[in-house]
Nucleic acid binder design. Structure first.
Lengths: 344, 344
DNA sequence: CTGAAAGCGCTTACAG
DNA sequence: CTGAAAGCGCTTACAG
């Protein structure tokens, strides 16, 4: 089958004995066009089954009606849900979404970002890889006049639009919940501190302990325990301490919480009686483990929608000098069996 | 910050005192170009930090170096993994991926497909929504000269490139495994039969029973049990039969298997002793439930890579008349506790 | 191997 | 409100 010959604005113009200029104006709903001709053009366009050639329009306008998204991993709860939310909104606006994954590598992240710049995307939405320290590729985005929106894992020092979670507050609530349940030696599995989200979670942990006058024991703070394996490893160390913790807050992810749970099972340590466990992210599996895992929900689909809406709002606001807006969303503690000692 | 003025082929041409035509040819590695000038052009391009304007190139060539993907849901194991695999390969080839989700609605699917056609994508990769019966929107894709690749949930009657799983074989193996474990009254939770994948899984079930001379009892075949809730509902009915099943093959998904497990827990029926459970798709959680769930892995990342590679191979083959190639992948049975009666 | 020219299909500043 | 014209930046068939 051969591609159909496409109908252009010239075909419409010819049929109506006007110029392509007028047709274009009518189709774009420009104000400088007669109501009559506009109607006529729209009618004829429909009759001829005209479809605007987006490639031509893009070239002329210098924009692509496309938004690029760069995330560490597509198949991870928070990111696939953010993408789902983004897709929902951008689709309504007839925008396209180009999705890239950095696989937690800066090199790949840079490659993705540059590809999107080459593609003339109108906006780049990014959550940084764990490796990312130098952010000159992000500055480069801005210098090309492309809107940059950071979310979740953001570089605070870079003034852009941001949609973040209030990690500190959420962490604090999680740790306070543990304290309320009678846990006193609460360990922290923390993530790479070059990412602000992990710093904030650490701060929330510290603040909660301070507030309740619990001494901070650096022995209980395990660095870089942000995968299932690393979480398990850290847990083994913690539980073999002379004075082991009675609860572990896996602030990095539910995956590390899962590592904690595995080790507890292996060592025949009962959860939540002997050990409380709290994760982060409300991955689907946290509901299904035995016991189910207390965690923090980040409403990631809603986050995706928020990001997209922010872009379209800002795109409208061309008049004034805009300042980098930051939207902070409030995560919610989901209390499950792994920390419910009192209720049992 | 203002966008930088972009360097064009004219800038390079001017600097070298040749025409843009030659520059273009050099950059595109055309054979009709002097080696010397080619080198010179590439050197100058690098010096000036030239970047091809993809929008212009796209318009001129009538293609977009973009592939559209339409899946029912992005945040579902198989699809997010297929996308991850696609992204991996297309990224290497400097192609873009535009991702849409149909949300299991034909209306949305049609909207997505049409948007991708309007976008002049080079290829559309699709896994149909459960509602899709009429496929004229897919024929429309082909009539626009756009390559169409179907995967997983395919319309068999439509002759296109396809990458599928051997669902029948996998189902048969799953049911045979149940039989080997001593289960004799094996129920089937089946999906909407307008989707071929669910028909094939049903066939695999039937073939396994026939092979082992087990009478087929239609009472044990539950239609349309393809979500957690519907799976649970069907299970309640099955377990209240005068002669209830001793195993349930949730051929639709692990989510329905989860529904089965929930009901079994509620009714204090022990798994796998009193009831064997097998799911489909190897969702992450199947490893984490208690007991862990036997299921079928579809190697979805690999499937994504396979699809992308198929596209690029076919794109090269312009010479001969191509026939619609179908690649069938072999899923693998993952045996876990929920069906291991003998081992216990 | 290279140049001159046309054209992809649109949008918009400039006149009138 | 409408037309004529230029231009977005490339690619390629046609000559030479």
């Amino acid at each position: 089958m051969k591609p159909k010959k496409r109908v252009t604005i010239y075909d419409i113009a010819e049929k109506l004995n006007i110029t392509a200029s007028s047709v274009s104006r009518a189709l774009n709903n420009s104000s400088h066009v007669n109501e009559e001709t506009k109607k006529l053009v729209l009618k004829t366009a429909a009759e001829l089954n005209y479809k605007r050639n987006i490639l031509a329009s893009n070239l002329r306008m210098g924009k692509s009606h496309t938004i690029g998204v760069v995330v560490p991993r597509i198949n991870q709860n928070i990111f696939s849900n953010v993408i789902a939310g983004l897709e929902e909104v951008t689709n309504q606006q007839n925008y396209n979404l180009i999705i890239c994954q950095s696989n937690e590598s800066v090199a790949k992240e840079i490659k993705c970002v540059n590809a999107l710049v080459d593609q003339h995307v109108d906006c780049i939405i990014i959550s940084m890889s764990v490796e990312t320290d130098d952010i000159s590729h992000l500055r480069n985005v801005i210098s090309h006049g492309i809107q940059l929106i950071q979310f979740d894992r953001v570089a605070t020092e870079l003034e852009t639009l941001k949609v973040i979670n209030d990690n500190e507050q959420a962490s604090m609530e999680a740790v306070e919940h543990l304290i309320q349940q009678g846990y006193r030696r609460i360990a922290l599995l923390e993530g790479p501190q070059n990412l602000d989200i992990f710093k904030q979670r650490r701060n929330g942990y510290l603040r909660a302990l301070q507030k309740h006058n619990i001494e901070i024991d650096e022995e209980l703070v395990m660095k870089n325990a942000w995968t299932k394996e690393l979480g398990a490893e850290a847990t083994r160390k913690l539980l073999s301490l002379p004075n082991p913790p009675d609860a572990i807050f896996a602030s990095t992810s539910d995956f590390s919480a899962l590592g904690v749970l595995d080790v507890a099972h292996d060592m025949n340590i009962s959860v939540p009686e002997q050990l409380g466990i709290c994760g982060y992210a409300n991955e689907a599996f946290t509901e299904l483990t035995n016991p189910s895992i207390t965690t923090i929900d980040q409403f990631s689909i809603h986050m995706g929608r928020t990001i997209a809406n922010l872009y379209f709002e800002e795109a409208k606001n061309t008049e004034t000098i805009r300042q980098p807006k930051v939207i902070s969303l409030k995560p919610e503690l989901i209390i499950r069996s792994s920390t419910l000692r009192n209720a049992k």
